[in-house]
Simulated assay, not measured.
Amino acid sequence: MTESIVLVINSGSSSIKFQLVHPVTGDAIGSGLVERIGEPVGRIVYRYAGGVMERELHLPDHIAGLRAAEAVIAETGPPLRERGIVAVGHRVVHGGAVFHEPTIVDDAVLKELRRLSTLAPLHNLPNVIGIEVARRLLPDVPHVAVFDTAFFHTLPDAAATYAIDAEVARTNRIRRYGFHGTSHEYVSGRAADFLGRDGADLRQIVLHLGNGASASAIRGGRAIDTSMGMTPLEGLVMGTRSGDIDPGVILYLHRNAGMKVDEIDDLLNRHSGLKGLCGENDFRSVLELVADGNPDAKLAYDVYVHRLRRYIGAYLVELGGVDAVTFTGGVGENNVDVRRDSLAGLEGLGIVIDETRNESPERVARRISSDTSAVEVLVVPTNEELAIARKAIALS
Rank of each mutant, 00 (worst) to 15 (best):
L349E: 12
D323K: 04
L346N: 02
V303M: 14
A365V: 00
E362T: 01
V322I: 13
S370G: 12
E359P: 02
S342Y: 10
S373N: 09
N281Q: 14
Y301S: 06
R270P: 01
N334E: 13
L308P: 00
G276E: 09
A374D: 15
L349V: 12
L267K: 06
D341E: 13
N269T: 09
N334K: 11
I312Y: 05
V375R: 09
D296Q: 14
S342R: 02
A324W: 05
A324M: 03
D341G: 14
N269F: 11
S342I: 10
G329W: 01
N281S: 14
I351A: 04
V290D: 03
E280W: 12
R270W: 09
G293F: 08
L299M: 15
G350K: 06
L268K: 03
D266T: 13
N358H: 05
R307L: 11
L267V: 07
G350C: 09
V303Y: 05
S342K: 05
A297V: 06
N269P: 07
G332L: 05
L349C: 14
V379H: 00
V290I: 02
A344W: 13
P361K: 03
A324K: 02
S285C: 12
N335H: 13
T328Q: 07
Y315F: 10
R310S: 15
K298R: 13
V303N: 04
R357Q: 04
E333Y: 00
F327Q: 02
I368S: 01
S373W: 10
S342C: 15
L287S: 12
N269V: 09
V325Y: 01
V364Y: 03
T356N: 13
G293P: 04
Y301L: 11
I351S: 06
P381S: 08
D371S: 11
K298H: 10
P361A: 09
V338F: 11
V325E: 03
A324I: 04
E362S: 03
D296C: 09
V303F: 10
G279T: 14
R363S: 07
T382H: 02
G320L: 02
N294K: 04
V317G: 09
G348A: 15
E318L: 15
L378H: 07
E333C: 00
S370K: 06
A297K: 02
V317F: 15
L299W: 12
N358L: 02
N294L: 09
G348P: 07
E280N: 12
I353V: 14
V322Q: 02
R309L: 14
G350H: 11
L378W: 08
Y315M: 08
L289A: 13
V336A: 15
E347R: 11
E347I: 08
R366W: 02
V336L: 15
C278I: 09
I351C: 07
